[in-house]
């Protein structure tokens, strides 16, 4: 049995100003092994965030089941932690206070709180910035706090929704390297949504390609590159082959979008 089992999951949203529902994702099946790094790519609007929110237990499913370690997901739980696309940091709390936040909510003992928060602040390289407030940080630093906050609660599964989406290419690469370094230390299961195909290949053991109308899984590509991953691999023949294959998948989805536009 895999650590995470997603079976036939569909999710519907209420359409604004009407009683109708909109099917965001349909018939999703996916099994994820403990300690693996799964990346998800797909055109905008294909339901990547929706799937992640469902895994986090923050939205209800219309159909299907999600199990983590054999237990049905009915709401948020300490076994999963989410890194949101926009950092979602409390602006009135310092870096340290923000990392403490998750620990406080999960009722960690008072003695552990400060020591543990400080440790994770240092782990993401912000030791010297513990007393800074979010508005005094760069976008990349904010995302590190976001990641530290999720890691500090010691989840089994780390859910990341385009955590580097707002960063420039160089910072993204550095952050990706750091994320892998941290992940390789204690191999938590990681599910990582991104728009960057290179990032998906570079980070993942598997790349899940999603399509839309309604959101579904088109294919899952195994990435057979050695670990630890290094920047040099980006130019390797194998990497280029993966990149071409994934580009074609996503371009196919874009074409179907173009057809819809032509009809309309």
């Amino acid at each position: 049995m895999s650590q995470i089992e997603i079976r036939d999951v569909s999710i519907e949203y209420k359409k604004p100003k009407s009683e109708e529902t909109f099917v965001a994702i349909q018939g999703i099946n996916l099994a994820i092994e403990k300690g693996s790094f799964v990346t998800i790519v797909g055109a905008s609007g294909c339901g990547k965030s929706t799937l992640l929110l469902a895994l986090a237990g923050l939205i209800r499913r219309a159909r299907g089941s999600i199990r983590v370690e054999g237990r049905d997901v009915t709401g948020p739980g300490p076994d999963r932690a989410m890194v949101f696309q926009d950092a979602s940091l409390l602006p009135w709390r310092s870096v340290h206070g923000n990392v403490r936040f998750g620990l406080e909510l999960q009722r960690w003992s008072r003695d552990d709180l400060n020591e543990r928060a400080a440790r994770f602040v240092r782990m993401v390289g912000l030791g010297g910035f513990a007393d800074y407030h979010p508005h005094q940080l760069s976008g990349g630093m904010r995302q590190r706090v976001n990641i530290a906050r999720a890691l500090a609660v010691d989840p089994q599964v780390l859910l990341m929704d385009e955590p580097f989406g707002a960063l420039d290419a160089q910072t993204r690469e550095v952050m990706g390297d750091e994320l892998l370094r941290i992940w390789e230390r204690d191999k938590k299961t990681a599910i990582f949504v991104t728009h960057s195909i290179d990032e998906a290949i570079f980070l993942g053991d598997r790349v899940v390609v999603m399509g839309r109308n309604p959101g579904h899984i088109r294919d899952v590509v195994e990435i057979d590159l050695p670990r630890p991953r290094a920047a040099a691999m980006l130019d390797s023949a194998a990497f280029i082959a993966y990149r071409r294959k994934l580009r074609e998948y996503i371009a196919g989805d874009m074409q179907s979008l173009q057809m819809i536009k032509d009809v309309a």
């Binding site: 923050l58 948020p76 739980g77 300490p78 932690a81 989410m82 949101f84 979602s88 936040f101 909510l105």
Partner: peptide, 9 residues
């Protein structure tokens, strides 16, 4: 922020 807080229970 509410959603982030909820995700931590």
């Amino acid at each position: 922020l509410v959603r982030a807080a909820k995700s931590f229970g």
